[in-house]
Design a protein around this nucleic acid. Structure first.
Lengths: 216, 216
DNA sequence: CGGTAGATTGAACCGTCTCAACCCGCGTGG
DNA sequence: CCACGCGGGTTGAGACGGTTCAATCTACCG
């Protein structure tokens, strides 16, 4: 990942222990710093003026939080821990105070995040519920595998409602989609404990979906 | 906007004349440069491996293109002109080659773009077709006004299909939504020529929508 | 031992998609 | 000059996927 390389310069990093449901920061608070997620899983959330809300992502180790507010004085989203973890405060209010190495890392994160969002938007506006959930699981598997975890066994840190919020679905639809994927033999669902039986097929759901009727 | 301020340093900017339907760059091409839109309107588009596509935005003057590929060697989207215009090639392959002023401007653009995308995702996954179209028009009005154009009269540079692709709707639904907004007295539609009669109400559609039935 | 948060399941509803027909303006070529 | 094709837009009817609302179940916790 090279993520640690950019941080190993040995500054006075401030480390924050995280507990489930604990906010790391909230939208509107003074932006004191950027945060590097060292352990655990969080959710980031935006809320509109009229009260609608959406989960924008589930950052894990290697992700940087607060980027979206880099040009603002206050945070633009909520960042809330889903389980125990640790976040490191990066010692820069403005980017140009930061060492060159970090600047490059931050820019890379921003560009990557932008691309990911574009593809999620594409998926959200073109894929069925089943395909969205399948892709969500495949994506999660990729990220966990990149962090050294199993690509096939995983434990969801988020609720059905949070997955639904991220995917633009209701929690009931997420439940049913998981059920259908299980019926197809692609995954094995037991509450929040999942086994991804056929990862390749899971990734292929978006394309196969229209040819294979959902239920027979 | 301060956009020109960051560019007025007087480097050897290469200027590209744009014609309708002409691609400025395409996904996969070697990323030679970033582009600053000086005039005209473009569309940016991503296409997935299995052929699904989505318009990710309609950049206009002041926007920077190619940001999403800042950490890549090739562009990650297509950028295609919708009408005549002009784009300036920014003389930097890597960001750290660029002058400090431009770096800061680029970072600001990235962060702003990320926030905008998050809110569009929120809107796409929570709002009705009418509300999405209303918000699209209000947003367009804001951007045009910021560029010195009228906030109430505007000429669409894109087709219904392109609007639909951006909003996650079909072109028929866009047509019908425009018709309903016109019936409500919020806009006056004549092909691509629009008059935004009640901009405040247009912005309020997302909230009012559920209380006020779509048609009577 | 209730109480609560999360998950599951069912049934009815509804907004959007799909498919089709049709219209219009415009450029092209016979 | 007109016929034609074509891209873009509008309109209608029907189907369908996801939402909504409700009931039920479980695990966990005070």
């Amino acid at each position: 990942m090279g993520s640690h390389a950019a941080l190993d310069a040995g500054w006075p990093l401030i480390k924050h222990r995280l507990r489930p449901r604990q906010p790391l920061f909230l939208a509107g608070q003074d932006r004191g710093a950027l945060y590097y997620v060292h352990a655990g899983c969080l959710k980031t959330r935006v809320i509109s003026a009229d009260g609608r809300e959406r989960i924008t992502g589930f950052p894990m180790r290697g992700d940087i939080l607060g980027l979206e507010a880099l040009d603002l004085g206050t945070y633009a989203c909520d960042a809330i821990a889903l389980d125990v973890g640790e976040a490191w405060e990066l010692p820069c209010r403005h980017l140009d105070e930061a060492p060159q190495e970090l600047q490059a890392y931050v820019t890379r994160c921003l560009a990557r995040e932008l691309r990911r969002d574009w593809y999620w938007m594409l998926d959200l506006s073109t894929l069925s519920a089943d395909a969205r959930v399948a892709l969500f699981l495949a994506d999660l598997s990729d990220r966990l595998a990149a962090l050294g975890y199993s690509a096939h066994q995983l434990m969801l840190r988020m609720t059905r409602a949070e997955i639904g919020s991220f995917l633009g679905l209701t929690l009931e639809t997420v439940t049913r989609a998981l059920g259908r994927l299980q019926a197809r033999g692609l995954v094995s669902v037991d509450g929040r404990v999942l086994e991804l039986v056929d990862l390749a097929a899971l990734r292929g759901v978006p394309a196969s979906d229209d040819t294979v009727p959902v239920c027979h």
